[in-house]
Every structure is written in C-alpha cells, then in structure tokens.
Design a binder for these strands. Structure first.
Ligand SMILES: Nc1ncnc2c1ncn2[C@H]1C[C@H](O)[C@@H](COP(=O)(O)OP(=O)(O)OP(=O)(O)O)O1
Ligand SMILES: Nc1ncnc2c1ncn2[C@H]1C[C@H](O)[C@@H](COP(=O)(O)OP(=O)(O)OP(=O)(O)O)O1
Ligand SMILES: [Mg+2]
Ligand SMILES: [Mg+2]
Ligand SMILES: [Mg+2]
Ligand SMILES: [Mg+2]
Lengths: 436, 436
DNA sequence: CCCGGTGAG
DNA sequence: TCCCCTCACCGGG
DNA sequence: ATGTCCGCA
DNA sequence: AGCGTGCGGACAT
C-alpha cells in the first residue's frame, strides 16, 4: 500500500471522508444545529480509532464503497444499449399516474415531541434547565437537550463519545416507565383530534385533522396551534408539528401550501437524507448515481438511472418522495398489530459454550416474560448473535405449532456455531399475514 | 357415503362432470369440431376407468374442487367487510390506465401451421389424404388430421384411447427431424416479413408486419394472404393467421378491426378457455368465482372478486385479456435464450434401487449429450421422479460452479427416497437472469 | 433458494 | 403393451 | 422458507 | 474502558 498515485490518494481520501461521516452515527445529518461538523467528526473519529467498533465501521464503509463501484459499473453498462429518452418518457408517464393519486383534500399533520426523553427529565427535575444533558441507557444516549446538541451530541451516540464532545455533559439514566406515562397522555390528546390517528413511535403521530377542522370551522394552522397549546397546557412539554420531517423544531410548526407547486418546490431543495427511509447508506448510494446536490430535485433528473435500478432504490418510493406524495393511504390510520417480538442482550465477550448458553437462557426467559405480558405467540424462531468483531449471524427455524415457552425458545442453542460472542438476540414472528 | 340428499347428489354429479371433462385432456376445449362431446367424454372415461391414471385424475379433480371451496369461502368472508363499489371504481381506474397502453399502430399477426405434424406426414405420404390418421410418439398423439379430429381425437391423447374413439384411426410414428426441416423452412419465410419475429413453438410465430406493409403499400390482410400463399407455394402446407387464438382454422385468416370497440366486442364473447394461459384448472376456478358464461366479458363483471384475489388469478393479466391488449411489449420480438434444459423418461414401474439408478444414468447420459450439442451449462440441478401412483416429487440443489458432465448430473441419485418409480427427469437451469 | 402446480406445443 | 416429453412462469414457504 | 442489510425511535 | 434495544421492511436465494 505504498502507492501514491493521484487517483489512489483521491480514492483513499474519499473513503476516509465517508468513514468519518459514518462514524458520526446514523442519526447524524438529521439536525443541523452544530456549528462545526468537521471538528466534531474529527473528535468522534479520534475517540473511536483502534477499537473493534471502529474496524467494523471501516469494513462496512468499504463494503458500501465496493457496492457503489458495482452499481456504477452496472449503470455504465446498462446505459450503453439504452434509449435514455424513451426510458425518461416512460418515467414521465409514470409520474403523471402518480400525480393523479395526489390528494390535497386531506389535512394530514405530523406531530412530534421536542427532545422527548430529555424534556420529560427536565419536567421532573427543573434544575436541569438550560444545562447540557443527555438521557442515557446502556451506555448509549437516547436523546440530548438542545443545549447539548450544539456540541454535536446526538441520539444513538456512545456516552463516552458524547463526553468528549461536551465534557460538562450531564448524563441522566433512562426511566422508560415515565416516558410511557407521558406518551399515553399525549396520545390521548392526539386522539381527540383524530380517533384514527397513527402513532409512529412513543412521541409522535400522524393525524388526519380534516374532520376536526371541518367540524370546528378551523384552519389547519389554527387546529395545529390548538393541539400544541393543549399538549403544553396538559403536560408542560412542547411539541412541533408540520409535514414530516419537521421543518422548524423545537416548539414550532410549519404550514406548507396545499398545492402541488409549493409541495414540489419544498421537496426540490430538500436533502434526501431528511427523507424518512433514506439513511446514511442510501444517501451515499444515491449520491453516487448522480443525486449530486443530494436534494430530491435530482430524483427527477436521474429518473432514468433509478428506473433501471428499481429494486435497489425503490423507483415508485423515490418518485413519490420527489412529488411530495406520501403513502397512497390517504388515511394515516392503519391500526397496528404486532408482527414480531424479541429480546436482545449485549455482554463482554464470552468464549465458553456453557457461559453462552447461560446468557441464552436469560434472554429466552426475558422474551417469555414479554410474550406472556403481550399474550403473543409465534412460529418462526430466529436466533441472532454477534461476535466481538461485530459480525452478525442469524439462524431461523419455523415450526408447525405456536411457540410461547422459554424451553422452546432455548432450543435455538443448537444453531450457535461460533465462539467470541458479545450479543444474543431471540426473535419470534409468524412470517407473512395473520394467523387464524 | 350413502347420503342421497339433493345437495349431496348435486355435488357428486358436479364432481363427476368436472372429472369427465378433465379426462378429455388438457387440449380439450380448444377445437370445437366434434359433434357430440358428451358421448366422446363418456368413451374416454370408460376406457380410463380403474387405471391408476384415472385414480390420479380423480384425485387432482378433487383437489381442484377443494381449492374452489376454499376460494369461495374466502370470497364470502372478504366481501362482508368490503366496499364493492369502491373496489370496482378502483378497478375502473386501473382499466383506464391499461387502456391508455393500447397501441393500435402496430400490425401484429399470429401465424400457425395447420395440423402441422400430420400435414407434413401427408406431404410425404399422399396416400393418407382424406384419412383419419394421427401422429404418435411414445403412445401419445402429438396431433391428428382434421378428419380424425371429428371423432374427438386430439393432441396429447393416449393412442389407445384415440383408437376407441376412432377405430379406423391410422397411427403414424413421429419423425421429428422432418418437422424440424420444415419448421426451419417456414420460419425462414416468416423472417422475410419480420426479421424480429418471435417464434412460439415449432409451427407458429408472432410477426410485426407494420414495417413490411408500409414498405410494400399493402394492407395487413393482403400481407397475411401473401404470407400464407408463400408458405403454401414453398412447402405445400397450409397455415392460418389472425389474432391468437386463431379463429378460423384450417387454412384461414381472420382480420379484426383495429379499433378498441371491435376488439372488446370480440373478447366479450370469447370463452376464457381459449385464452392462452387459461387451462382446464383456471377455467374451473374462474367459473367458480362467477365467470358463469365462461366468457371474457365476465372478467369485467367480476372485477371486484378478481381484484381481491390478484395473486391467484393475475388481475392485470385478466384485465388485459378483457381489453384485448396483449403483452405491453408492442414488439413481438424478445430474442429468446434458453433458460433450462432437461431430459425425462417414463418406464414400467421399477422397484430395485439398482434398476432405478441404471435408468437415472441413462437419463443423465442423454441430458449430457443434449447439453453438449447446445453448449449449455447450469448450476441448479433438479431431479423429478414419478411414482406409479403418478405422484411427483421434485428435489433440487444449486451448486457454486457450472455443471455439464454426466457424473455431476448423476449425483442427484442421493435425492431419491422412494421406490415404485415410473418416470425420471433431470433438469438444469440457473435461476433468475443471465450468468456473466 | 426449493417445491409444487399450471400451461403451451 | 394400459396416458409423453420439453420448456416457461408463478406463488408460497 | 432462510439470511442479510437498512432504517427508525 | 468503551458503541444498545426493539421493531418493521426489502431483497436475494
Ligand atoms: N437511537 C435511539 N435509541 C434509543 N432511543 C431513541 C433513539 N432515538 C430516539 N430515541 C428515543 C428518545 C427520544 O427522545 C424519543 C423520540 O425520538 P425523536 O423524536 O427522534 O427525538 P427527540 O424527540 O428526542 O428530539 P426531536 O426534538 O428531534 O424530536 O425516542
Ligand atoms: N400435447 C402435445 N404433445 C406433443 N406434441 C404436441 C402436442 N401438441 C402439439 N404438439 C406438436 C404437434 C403439432 O402438430 C405441433 C403444433 O401444435 P398446434 O399448432 O397446437 O397444433 P396443430 O398444428 O397440430 O393443429 P392446429 O391446426 O390446431 O394448429 O406441435
Ligand atoms: Mg421527538
Ligand atoms: Mg419522534
Ligand atoms: Mg398448428
Ligand atoms: Mg402451434
């Protein structure tokens, strides 16, 4: 590896850049509060360097790079014998069809509590006001106060990394039962505005307020303001609202004009990374195929490439994003029923099979308990385990009867064929639709 | 089974009816030449009764009946909480979209030789003129002269059954090499009219004659007449043409008006069984869900049911059929590349493993030869074998390298776990698209 | 991927 | 003498 | 069906 | 010292 040709240097520097960005964590790129992202990334990178975690991230990053090269090669090849104009015309036709499905008659709003866990902690401990603090569980931050976020501290970040970024950071332990209480409370409020509301996580939901606005002769803006005031009055917590993803957090709301033009103008300059479903990997992939400015506007420009890589990128999904048409379910409804249940535990590396099996037993016991509480059963058992290299294996087995007992879960031990384990996960589901 | 309630009697009689119809063979219902189908069916049924073949057909028939019951139950249930009007409106919208894809600018014609193998035999042996004769291979008819067809004799029928229907039937042995010669000859002729023509079997093809008609200032009708005359002049064999399936065989052509109205009027009264892709099973299933008159017109009537059973019936496919829009590939082109190759042999029941393995070896040898001739290799080997009950088993194994040698094919012997074999088949393919 | 089923010629 | 043989495609697991 | 990867809270 | 837990979904095989 002594080559120093310009091309080689460029490639390596690119890889380093993407790796550094990757190390910033999956939720990086969502909020844009931090001043100097480059400096932050450097601190994170330095703090990680040398660890097995770092090595694994490097490997993953490399894999994405290789994947990009393959995609580019395929694109090159495919474009040789391809009538681009024809494909684009075909896409335009598809776009027209999707456009037809646009429904501007429904008032859909997305509401999401501000720094949820953190503000709940603040509520119960006012001395935290104005402080840089974060909520932590198992060594990882679940969220951070807005003061802390200015230092680059984010959800999903290892606590010790956050400390490097923000030495005075106060760490508060998770209190899930408390968040559940408040969550129930706010969901109750949301329900008043839309009985069919669709919860999307413990602190947010999609509401169809068309009927409510009609009945109360309100504009959507007035209605959302009322929702936010109600939440604040009853919980003393702030909530933001708007079309997803929220434009102006915290404690704000954003009203987009209800016409196709305005919506498309909005998405045109929206970085794809903000789109739900586009994470750090998809962002790199899309950038590679020509979404240079990383905005949704480029989805249209690159519709030909996307169309020949439908499976990889999700043609219709991206076009909908470009058009600003969310799912075709006008009703944000969709009553959720659980589709899987699982339990997972991480521990310091275990080598002896007996120790591993003991851990497995603990996880199985915990899962059995959760299943009993939920009254849930399954027929496909999946064992997932992680080595100290962070490499992950999954082994699954479907059976012809319903499983609910610890003993049956524990049977997956037959599928462990490695040592150096650091994590065990048991998951149950029933594949496909619903059981009779 | 002593119940004689009206319902029970009805059910049993229906089953018998469907079974009798089934026994008439898969290609029954295509040609409507025979006078008294009921009498024919009775003869076939009587000749089959008691055999293992018959028992198997009965079992299959029963399975379809059960399948129908399940479908009807599901339909019943689904329709309870279903806004039929809404679903139909949605279907109408889909139909509009499909209608948009209708392309009346291309002149596509389907040409198909009359009683191909039989007429080739007649050509080489004029003494067969006017006789009731059929071409036979391995005890099964490949085709029959039109004179013989009047007796109910059909392709795919066992020779000994055909003899019962038509005692004076003359049987002529298959001479494949000869049909190949003629096939090449006629394909050559078709090519003159469309270099991109799509062969669809040894005696037929789809031709896009748009360009030819344009260049020679001909109508489609004139062009097709010329094609047929050319074929007759150069081969002394007759060919029919028209939209598939051919309307007036033999030696005819059918011209459908090139407007949506006429096409839909045509399909409206077309029995679904004539539609390529709808066989004896699909016909029964569709009839069960309400395609009562068994015509494509009912596809529209029953669009709601079909839409909720998309997977079972192929919603878009059926709607396209109703609209008379064939595949969206305006170009009948699609250069074919082989996707699998296999060899199969039927024999009198073998019990001893050694005997079975000897047969397997023969089949493997034959396949290897065919593969060598074709220069074809594969990576997924499928073994299929049939018991004397006609029950079929399939066992497949993919490997990470290209297989072409007899020895590797013969390795599938590990997957035989039965006795009483009457048939062995080895097949090779490579799953999905193309290898590099 | 693996298996069974349907259909065509 | 007692129901073939080759190939393609689909849907479920 | 099994196995891997991606994304979100 | 050092990077978790629980879920849904898409895709390849
Ligand atoms: N990576 C994570 N791991 C565990 N819990 C998380 C993670 N991300 C978020 N959470 C939890 C804690 C959050 O307070 C809660 C709601 O998430 P989210 O709405 O995305 O952020 P937030 O409410 O903390 O801040 P924001 O003001 O940006 O909405 O879910
Ligand atoms: N079931 C079968 N098994 C073996 N060969 C068959 C079978 N069906 C058809 N063939 C062979 C023999 C036919 O002459 C040839 C062309 O088939 P096809 O066009 O359907 O019938 P045909 O040409 O004999 O009569 P038609 O006049 O109805 O077209 O393919
Ligand atoms: Mg939030
Ligand atoms: Mg949230
Ligand atoms: Mg023919
Ligand atoms: Mg034919």
């Amino acid at each position: 590896m002594e080559s120093n040709s310009p091309k080689d240097t460029l490639v390596r520097s690119q890889e380093t850049e993407s790796l550094v960005k990757r190390l910033a964590g999956p939720s990086s790129g969502k909020a844009g509060l931090a001043k100097d992202q480059t400096e932050i990334n450097r601190i994170i990178s330095d703090a990680s360097k040398g660890s097995k975690f770092y090595e694994n991230e490097k490997k993953k990053d490399k894999e994405v790079t290789v994947r990009i090269e393959k995609i580019l090669k395929y694109k090159e090849e495919a474009f040789k014998n391809l009538d681009v104009a024809k494909v684009e015309a075909s896409m335009d036709h598809l776009i027209e069809q999707l456009e037809e499905q646009r429904d501007l008659t429904q008032l859909i709003v997305h509401v999401d509590m501000d720094a949820f866990f953190a503000n709940v902690e603040l509520l119960d401990n006012p001395s935290l006001a104005g402080k840089t603090f974060a909520v932590v569980g198992k060594g990882v931050l679940t969220t951070a106060s807005y003061e802390a976020r200015k230092f680059g501290v984010r959800s999903g970040m290892a606590a010790f990394i956050a400390k490097k970024l923000c030495p005075h950071l106060i760490l508060v332990e998770n209190r899930h039962w408390r968040y559940s209480e408040i969550s129930d409370q706010i969901m109750g409020i949301f329900h008043r505005y839309d009985p069919d509301m669709c919860p999307a996580g413990c602190d947010e939901g999609y509401l169809n307020i068309t009927a409510y606005c009609e009945e109360h002769a309100m504009t959507a803006e007035e209605c959302v303001r009322e929702i936010r005031e109600t939440v604040f009055r009853e919980t003393k917590l702030t909530v933001s609202a708007g079309i997803a993803p929220n434009k102006n957090k915290p404690n704000g709301q954003y009203q987009l004009d209800f016409d196709a033009k305005a919506i498309k103008a909005f998405t045109h300059d929206l970085p794809i990374r903000k789109v739900p479903g586009i994470g750090r990997v998809s962002e790199r992939l899309l950038e590679a195929i020509g979404i240079k400015a990383s905005t949704c506007g480029d989805i249209y420009t690159q519709r030909a490439v996307i169309s020949i890589m439908d499976k990889q990128f999700g043609l219709v999904y991206l076009l909908r994003t470009y058009l600003g048409i969310s799912s075709n379910t006008v009703q944000a409804h969709t009553r959720e029923e659980r589709k899987s249940i699982g339990a997972e535990r991480t521990f310091s590396t275990l080598h002896k099979l007996d120790d591993i099996l003991a851990k497995l037993d603990e996880v199985a016991a915990e899962l059995e308990k959760d299943m009993q509480e939920d009254g849930w059963v399954g027929r496909t058992i999946t064992l997932k385990y992680k080595l100290d290299t962070y490499r992950v294996f999954t082994r699954a087995k479907s059976v012809d009867h319903w499983v609910s007992k610890k003993e049956e879960l524990y049977a997956v031990r037959q599928m462990i064929h490695s040592s150096h384990l650091t994590n065990i996960n048991i998951l149950l589901d029933w594949q496909r639709p619903a059981p009779p």
